[in-house]
Simulated scan of single mutants.
Amino acid sequence: MARPIVLISDLPNQFEIGNFTKINLHHLTTKINSLDKKVGPLVGLSYYQQQMFRTAKGLPVQITDSAWSSLGFSFKRRGLSALIPQRG
């Protein structure tokens, strides 16, 4: 439930009042299948880290299907160590 809350910050309130029906989590892609297979887990984790960072700065969540922004965010923040597996 943590990932949907990153995208919809008032999700618990919506559940409580019965005002929520569906959560759409997007599949992020570079549009290069071989690259997606290699960096898929990194992309997913980076995307949600990026959105938490945006929220903390008072910026809106950025909904997208493109993995490139998340990859750029990860490499900008962590350099090549972004390629080392992390726990989600």
Rank of each mutant, 00 (worst) to 15 (best):
G88V: 09
L83P: 11
D65I: 12
I17Q: 10
Y48R: 12
G79P: 05
K37P: 08
G44W: 00
N24G: 11
G88I: 08
L45S: 13
G18E: 09
D65Y: 01
R87I: 14
N24W: 14
S74A: 11
N33Q: 14
I5F: 05
I5V: 14
G58Q: 10
L28Q: 09
N19V: 04
I84Y: 13
Q86R: 12
T29L: 01
F20M: 06
A67F: 00
L42C: 08
P85T: 07
T64F: 03
F75K: 07
Y47I: 02
A56Q: 13
P60N: 12
D65Q: 13
F15D: 00
A56H: 06
N13C: 04
Q62K: 07
S34K: 12
I84C: 07
Q14R: 15
G40H: 03
R54K: 13
D36N: 13
L25Q: 11
P4F: 02
K22R: 14
G18A: 08
P4D: 09
N19F: 08
G18N: 08
L7R: 13
E16T: 05
L80N: 14
L83I: 09
K22S: 14
L59C: 11
E16R: 14
Q49L: 10
R3Q: 04
M52E: 01
I23K: 13
R54P: 03
S9V: 02
R87D: 13
W68I: 12
S9H: 08
V39K: 06
G44D: 13
